[in-house]
Amino acid sequence: MSSLKDSITKTNTLLGQSYLKPQGKSVKKRALALMITSLVDAFSILVIYLLFGPALSGESIDPNLGIQLPIAYQSQLSEQNNILIVKKDKFILNHKEVNERSLVGELKKSVEKLSKEKKNSLVIVADKNYDIEKLNPVLIAASEAGLNQLQLAVEHQGE
């Protein structure tokens, strides 16, 4: 009986030895040290998540562009595709500014280039307050470039 009691005491002592057996240092100091260790662990996990989390969860647009996307609940998350940003009569196709006249040619080029990688759709990004008729040249150019499927960018909201 006494041996069992001894073993329990030993186990408890091992689990929380800094609290039960301070051994020279004060209990408060030891407890603080332990808290900092776990805090460092938690902070490290947070840093890793913040570094890689947004990159892993789909496409995002540059907030400096000042484009406010409309909210949609039935949207799918975007994959790597041809991205055409339409802003103030400017067309930015895959980070490269193109004018309206060369839009068809540039679209054809990028479609051919990305069709080898099986990414042959076009994502159109525009501000929610943008006039829809200003997208007409894009729709016509995409049709001429052989793109029958279009993807219109929205802010993804899960239902």
């Binding site: 913040l50 789909g58 960018a153």
Partner: peptide
Amino acid sequence: LSVLSICICFLLTTAVWNQMGFIGVNQ
């Protein structure tokens, strides 16, 4: 801990939280 705190503050303020989705349409 101090370095990690600064890293977290920086990443929190610069992170883009809005996920871009799309609605597929036919021409």
